[in-house]
Amino acid sequence: MSDQQPATDNILELTDLSKRFGGLLAVDSVGLNIKRGEVFALIGPNGAGKTTLFNCVTGLYQPTSGKVMFDGKDITGSKPHQVARLGIARTFQNIRLFDYMSALDNVRVGHHVRMKAKMWDSLFKLPRERKEEAVITEKSMDLLRFVGIARQANKYARNLPYGQQRRLEIARALATQPKLLLLDEPAAGFTPQEKVELMQLVKKILARGITVFLIEHDMKVVMGISERIVVLDHGEKIAEGPPDEVRKDRRVIEAYLGKSA
């Protein structure tokens, strides 16, 4: 992405973002800035509103108020597919793969938004369509190799073991060629060994010039890879800063351990 002139230093800027469900303010006037090329972590107890914030950024939910700026453009209220086209990809907390499609096809779907083939090209298998398919297949295999599950290319996504499903979801997200990757609890349910591998993977992704915004509970993982953290509690931002600082914050400790602590 070096050929592009960044409009600002920040790839994502949220201003006063709120999301209300009936009487529940799931996200409450949250503002945060994510810098190009960093790993930014969002933590907070269950139900704090982290996933809801992701959904507001990626267009799955319409924010009740506030603004989402991505790469210098206002994308508040954009449709999910428009957001993906602009360069935000994501994974889901509860894995959402295309179960009855092969791992390879899952990744090829990820390339959809960067492909050019129209219906007529596909109907008649025109040469340019066939060429594009071949290129995309190769790229997809590369991505499967990148996350380390190339051998499972022809298996149904649902038949992969849990850890590999999480990796496949990352590969699929990377296939959209994002500038910003949102990972929703990517290490949930992982063994310590798998967590280490995941941290390595995130670093490899970062090395590709992709900014990473992740939700994670495990402080070891967070401390290991991210420079800055925002803590959310009851939808409100209660702390922000480098991990070891945030860890000592009184309000953060209260949020996690309850007021009595």
Partner: peptide, 16 residues
């Protein structure tokens, strides 16, 4: 097929 399997995920992958 992606839409058939999971419409939300398909949209998040950039499919209209």
């Amino acid at each position: 097929m992606a839409i058939r399997e999971d419409e939300v995920a398909a949209a998040a992958m950039g499919i209209n």
